[in-house]
Design a protein around this nucleic acid. Sequence first.
DNA 1: CGGTTGGTTGACAGCTGTCAAGTCCTGTGG
DNA 2: CCACAGGACTTGACAGCTGTCAACCAACCG
Lengths: 230, 230
Amino acid sequence: MSAVPKLLCENCQAASLCLPVGLDQAEFSSLDQLIKRRIQLERGEHLIQQGQAFNSYYAVREGAFKSYTVSRDGREQIWGFYFVGEMFGFVGADTDQFPYSVCALEPSIVCEISFSKLMQLTAKIPALQKQMLKLISHRFITDLSTPRNHSAEKRLASFLLSLSSRFKKSGQSSVDFRLPLTRQEMANYLGITIETTSRLLTRFSSQGVVEVRGKHFIIHDLRYLQKLAC
Amino acid sequence: MSAVPKLLCENCQAASLCLPVGLDQAEFSSLDQLIKRRIQLERGEHLIQQGQAFNSYYAVREGAFKSYTVSRDGREQIWGFYFVGEMFGFVGADTDQFPYSVCALEPSIVCEISFSKLMQLTAKIPALQKQMLKLISHRFITDLSTPRNHSAEKRLASFLLSLSSRFKKSGQSSVDFRLPLTRQEMANYLGITIETTSRLLTRFSSQGVVEVRGKHFIIHDLRYLQKLAC
DNA sequence: CGGTTGGTTGACAGCTGTCAAGTCCTGTGG
DNA sequence: CCACAGGACTTGACAGCTGTCAACCAACCG
C-alpha cells in the first residue's frame, strides 16, 4: 500500500465513468483537490478494515477490489466487486465507519477522495452533486439487481451478464475478459458453493455458451445467458 | 391517491428518522418547502410506475410500501419494503427514471420531496446533505445485508431480525408487530417459494421461536433467530 | 520433488421447488 | 345472519437441484 502522487484526473481513462462527468473544464480541474492520495495495492492487500473510520470514498483507477464482512462463525460474506471506473465506500456515511473490509483482487490503484472536501465541492457545483448521486444510485442498482431469487444457473448467468456490461462500460471487451476472482469468491458472492459454480461453468462450457479457461472468460452466446437470466 | 395538505414535518412522528436529523430549528422549518405534497394511498395503489420520470424522493409517513420490477416473463421481483420513517426513490437518480414500480401495502401516506429543491437546500445546509447521504447509505445496507447466501431458514431468520430492528427504530415493538405482507411477498423478496416460507413459519411457530397468526408476528426467541442468521 | 492452493468431478443426502389437495379467512350478496 | 366465492395459506408427496464430503487433478513455488 504505497502512494502514487503523479496521476491526475485529466489523464484518467476512467474519467468518463467517474465524478468528472458533466463538469466543465474549470470544474474538472478542481477535482484533483479532492484526491487525498492515489494508492497502489498488491493482490490481497487491504485498503479498508471493517469498522475503520469513514473519511473517504474510493474510485478504482486500475485493477479490482472486493468488499466483504466476516460473520461471527468466521465465514466471509462478499458484498460486491469494484472494477475500473467504479466507486465504493458510500456506505460508510451511515455510521461514520466502514461496515465492510475492502481488499485488492489484483495489483490495483485507487483514488482516495476526501469526503468532507467532496461535500464542500458538491455544494458549489450542482453537476458534481448530481453525478455523485448518480454514481451512488447506479451502484445501488448494480448490487441489488443480482437476483437473490432463482436457481444457481440463473444467478450465474445474471452475474456474467452484469460483468459483461460493466467491462463494456470501462472500454474493455464485453465478451472476452479476465475475471480476477477465485471460484470461491464468485460462489460466495452468488450465494452458492464452489462445486456448484464449477459444475455450472463446466456445463456452460460444454454447451458452448461460455468458454472458460481459468480466470479467462469468453462469452459466445450472450442471448442464451440473457434468456437464462430472464 | 389523494393529496393531504395540512401535515407538517414538525408534527411528524418519524422526523427523528428522516431528513430533519441534525438540523437546527430554522433549518427544520425550511424542510416543508421541499415537500411537493403529501399523498394518501389505499392498499395496492401505485405511487410509482417503472420507467416514470424521476423528480422526487419519497418518505413514508404512515403505512408501508414495496418496490418491484416485472421481468419479461411476467414475474414480479421485489426490491425492498419501506416502512414508517424510511425513504425510497434514490435509485431514480441513475437514469432519471425510476427503475421499479412502488405500491402501497396498506393505507399509507408519503411525503413527496422535490429532488431539485432538495439539491438546492443540501448545498446550503451541510447537515442536511450529510443526513441525506446517511439515509441513502443506511438504505443500501438494509437492502444488501439480506443474505443472498445461506439456506431459506437463515434468510427468513435474518429477514425477521431486520424487520424487528426497523420497527424498533420507528417506535413500534421489536418483537410484536403486524407485517402487512402476503406470504407471496415475503417469499418473493427472500428468493424462496411460498410453500417453503409457510413451512418455515410453521416450524418456527411449533418450536416456539416466533408466534405467527396470519400477518401478526410475535418473536419469542430473538437470540435463536440471531444464532440462525449468524 | 513435495507441499499448498485452486479447481474439477463423483456420490449421495437433504433441502427446496413443483404440483396438488385441502383448509382458513375475508368480503360479498342474499 | 348465513351461504358462498375467491384468495391466502397450509400441508403432503415427490422429484431434482444443490450442499456436503471426498478424491483427484493442475499449477505454482520453495
